[in-house]
């Protein structure tokens, strides 16, 4: 059962990890919202080292507001978003309050 549903606000865990993982550093610690559920997948963090990737993890397409994410570096219109595949173990529930995604 997937822990999050479309529309849920989620925060990407800001963990350092020296081994293989698929969470880009530029979204670590940032708040987005679940755009879509992409199903269960083998965990690449163990799969990369010869294991079977079990248990499988829910994968989410998480939307980040471009302005929130990049601040003044982004000069496009409000409403543009970045969608990133994020595995469930990298997500935690975020408060519904607007914190600009920088919390």
């Amino acid at each position: 059962m997937a822990r999050f549903q479309p529309g849920d606000r989620v925060k990407v865990i800001a963990a350092e990890m020296a081994t293989h993982h698929r969470t880009p550093s530029y979204i670590k610690g940032r708040v987005g919202r679940v755009h879509a559920l992409s199903g269960l997948w083998p965990n690449p963090e163990t799969l990369a080292y010869g294991a079977d990737g079990k248990p499988e993890r829910d994968l989410y397409l998480v939307a980040f507001d471009m302005k929130d994410l990049w601040g003044e570096r982004f000069d496009g219109p409000a409403g543009d978003v970045l969608l990133v595949d994020v595995y469930e173990q990298w997500l935690e529930a975020a408060e519904a309050s607007a914190d600009g995604g920088k919390a």
């Binding site: 880009p24 992409s38 997948w41 994968l59 496009g76 978003v81 970045l82 969608l83 595949d85 595995y87």
Partner: peptide, 15 residues
């Protein structure tokens, strides 16, 4: 155009 929402998709997993 600015009236069109741009969605960048970062393909980080196996999709």
């Amino acid at each position: 155009g600015d009236g069109v929402e741009v969605r960048v998709v970062d393909s980080t997993a196996d999709l």
